[in-house]
Nucleic acid binder design. Structure first.
Lengths: 165, 165
DNA sequence: CCATTGTAGTCAGCTTGGTTGACCTTTTCG
DNA sequence: CGAAAAGGTCAACCAAGCTGACTACAATGG
């Protein structure tokens, strides 16, 4: 039961370079958790990328498709396809841009905001399972260290999200 | 015009459920590092999934395509496609199975083993950048905590690797 | 010992989620 | 003003999965 081992970690024969893969596996595990909970609740199987769209739109109320594309790190055509899909499903709407007649402002519908709350809650569940195992202080430290890494690397510019696989 | 400024690095305003996404972003950042280093070195742009194949074959000297498929969590057809590709590129070879004439034993070539060493080294570089920032003790603790989580969840069975996106 | 059932692997065709390129409209700027 | 840049769409293509059908061999139970 070495759940709270000291950071010295003598017996840990850490293979250098293993951490990145562990990050991917942990994310996958949490993602699986979210999917199975969504299924339990009988919800549509939106994927993490969709949740990320929702979050961006919630935080950026005057975002356009091009904004979204650059945030997601995909082409505007691809982002447009996603937007069309989510609009058809009633999660967001395109509104005319107040000053630029080329552009469209994307806004979440109530349904979209509701889904975002649910997704946040389910991610939090998965996260909590980890906290239960290692302790909330450790989780907070990891959160902090991850942020530090990403802020350091990208220094202002937003981090890319979608894994290259 | 940002309504939500970047989180000020003051008190830990941890949004519950944020950690999973940070895991994905950190992995993506490390993966980007690996890719750009490979490009610098003029190497073929093999993806993380390929490195994972190499590792499995290195650890399981009598693995077949079906073994690999179940390990990767994909269909045998998909695994077969990957194997064909890697064989054409000279990273592995198919050998007749000693006792089962349907099956083929997959083995890394020297070139494959060399690539695995390189990939390990590049992942380690990315990992090290994080360690430089947060300190090696913190990284070791995170490594330990990730392992604990994955071991706890899967309890014996291998963890899924490829992110669902 | 043979008939049935199961397994390793391949081939073919489809789907998904991305790509590039061409294009129209509107905006920005020299 | 006129040229270049930018938002958005349409269309064609591509990569990497998938399912389904199939062959060849293996294992098992009368």
């Amino acid at each position: 039961m070495e759940t709270h081992a000291a950071p010295t970690a003598g017996a840990d024969d850490r293979r250098p370079g293993e951490v990145p893969l562990l990050l991917a596996m942990a994310f996958r595990a949490m993602s699986d958790h979210l999917h199975s909970r969504l299924a339990e609740l009988g919800r549509e199987p939106l994927r993490p990328a969709h949740g990320y769209v929702f979050r961006y739109l919630a935080d950026h109320p005057d975002a356009t498709t091009v904004d979204l594309a650059s945030h997601l790190g995909v082409t505007k055509q691809s982002a447009s396809k996603t937007v069309t899909e989510l609009a058809e499903w009633g999660y967001l709407q395109r509104h005319p841009h107040p000053t630029d007649r080329r552009a469209q402002v994307l806004r979440l519908t109530d349904r979209g905001r509701e889904y975002l709350r649910l997704a946040d809650q389910l991610w939090a569940e998965a996260e909590q399972r980890w906290a239960d195992l290692i302790g909330p202080d450790r989780l907070a430290a990891i959160h902090h260290d991850l942020r530090a890494y990403l802020d350091h690397l990208h220094d202002g510019r937003p981090a890319k999200l979608r894994p290259v696989w």
